[in-house]
Design a binder for these strands. Structure first.
Lengths: 351, 351
DNA sequence: TTGAAAGCGCTAACAG
DNA sequence: CTGTTAGCGCTTTCAA
């Protein structure tokens, strides 16, 4: 299968390589190539099954139509898949392909990977963290068209795409307020202010701020806020302890779906019904949220959109500097009901 | 930041481009370049921060050190992340990068994507399905170095990397036999022989065969085998119905971790304890398995290895034709115990 | 040992 | 309207 080149096409069509080139890049009109010649080239190309060698073209045009996507973690979390998926779709829609790599959070690997991509002349790089965090883009990216995902990088000369965690927090609390909750609302997970994440996680801090603001505006407040890791086990323990101390909450705001899973386990053990005894709302909008029984209402991380928006930003406005906030949609489950008190009142008023 | 070229390096070092090229590609010894010249080139390159333009090199050598990875689905399943992760690590270890794309199962998109990759002169393509299935590699791959993942493609002229589902099935059943189970063993999920997957799924069929063979060899057999979709909800329903018909199993073999999650929900509702009332073993080895309480013992899909092995096969033996089976390790949880009968017997013999 | 020169496949001035 | 020509940055043959 000897590769067909543009020269072959031109020869077969009986025109110059230049003419063939113009036809193939769709500029035969601009360049006033005769209709007949254009047709002959097109036919020859089709018959020969001509496909331009993009490597050669790139060498000439210094555009590879390839974008590098480097992220800290892709395997550990299903979220990453969605980001890649979104980026892929957006890239493909515009004739680009994605060079994907993962650093494991190691900055030496990171620098290495970015160099490898740059050596292959990528048109730009998307640098993604899977969880929003303060992080400066690596040096190697200086002077390269780049867009950050999930990075808080004050003073960085790039665009940064982020979920709107604050509004997400507000949405979660609003969902509870809307069904009548005012008291006994408890947050599980908190700021994630732990030994290994002193000061908390950006997502945690910002969500909590949104939650507290909304509750405050409604004249309510959190009854408890428990700081713990964002994994199921810790949700289980937190809720279990709460119940064993006799502090049954009316509603739980779990900072991740995984925490909600743990909370469900603890509530289930004590025979408490969701949503009638306890309402639950969580964050992430992962598959897990829909696997729980009843499905938990979850404020979703817009991973797919993070990917598409980053690619489009990179391609459309490579010079943009600043944050691009992406809203977090509420994925409704069946885990929220009116609090017992309200139900009582309603029942009474019906009589 | 004007890009530094090899010519710049050569000029600065005071040698010819040829000499510089030999030094940079590590063949100064072969080519008997003087030690002094070699040093000068190296220094110049370092000072200038020279990085070879791989696009240009590729045009000359027709090797891009880039591999295409096209898979049907990457977002929907965390598994895909692991495959990519494995492929990435293996590729990087050998100086290659990955062009990643997803087809969504659409064969037109597939052909398109593969063409795009081929146009970029990838050195080879890895074609991955996320779940083992009968599937011929697309036409576009003919004559291209390729390795399949999770595809059953009889007569295909490529290598195909697959999990050893049969041995996986045997391992699951063996885990139960080893702790004394003989009776009341029930399989949930089955062959996945459903309207939209007539004849079942390869993984399901093969796992079931392994399970049945092992049980048969031990003079045992499945008490029930329930055919259903591999999602939590169906596991929940299946087990719930079983229990409501008064057919409490001694042990459950769930064909996926998601089914195990559903089974846990149903068992929990009826107040049955895992593993003392019912033992559970499942397949996939996903995070979910470790999130359940108690963690379920799960026969893991070796996704990471599927990725690394595919890349290495592609690079090392591009002409290999046939299947490469990868074993499925058992990830032990705490979901298996001796059956009540056996425990009784043991207790009696202790007295 | 080193350097000159050709060429990978393509694009784009520029002249016909 | 079409063809000639000159590279893009790199490797590699061949002659010096």
């Amino acid at each position: 299968m000897p590769r067909v080149t543009l020269a072959d096409v031109a020869r077969k069509a009986g025109v110059s390589r230049t003419a063939a080139s113009f036809v193939m890049t769709g500029r035969s009109a601009d360049m006033r190539i005769s209709e007949a010649a254009t047709q002959k080239v097109l036919e020859a190309a089709a018959e020969l099954g001509y496909r331009p060698n993009l490597t050669a073209r790139s060498l000439r045009t210094s555009k590879t139509h390839t974008i590098g996507l480097v992220s800290d973690v892709i395997a550990t979390t299903p979220f990453a898949g969605e980001v890649i998926h979104g980026a892929l779709d957006a890239a493909l829609a515009r004739g680009h392909l994605l060079l994907v790599a993962e650093t494991g959070g190691d900055s030496a690997v990171e620098a290495d990977l970015i160099s490898e991509m740059l050596d292959r002349q990528v048109d730009g790089v998307i640098y993604a963290a899977m969880h929003t965090q303060e992080r400066q883009p690596p040096e190697a990216l200086a002077g390269v068209p780049a867009v950050l995902i999930n990075c808080i990088a004050p003073g960085s000369q790039t665009a940064c795409v982020l979920p709107d965690e604050y509004e997400g927090g507000r949405a979660a609390a609003t969902a509870l307020l809307d069904s009548g909750h005012r008291d006994g609302i408890c947050a599980i997970g908190g700021h994630h202010d732990l030994p290994h994440t002193p000061g908390g996680l950006h997502a945690g801090n910002t969500r909590m701020r949104g939650i507290e603001d909304v509750l405050g505006e409604a004249g309510a407040a959190l009854s408890f806020s428990i700081e713990c890791q964002y994994e199921p086990e810790f949700g289980y323990r937190a809720v279990r302890e709460l119940l064993e101390r006799g502090q049954k909450p009316e509603a739980l705001i779990c900072l991740t779906d995984r925490l909600a899973m743990g909370a469900y386990q603890a509530l289930g053990e004590k025979g408490l019904d969701i949503p009638h005894d306890v309402s639950v709302v969580s964050f992430d909008g992962s598959d897990l949220a829909s696997w729980l029984r009843p499905r938990v209402t979850s404020v979703a991380l817009p991973h797919y959109e993070l990917g598409t928006i980053a690619v489009n930003a990179l391609l459309d406005k490579p010079d943009f500097i600043g944050d691009i906030l992406v809203s977090m949609p509420v994925r409704a489950g069946e885990s929220i009901a009116a609090p017992s008190e309200t139900r009582d009142r309603l029942r009474r008023s019906e009589q």
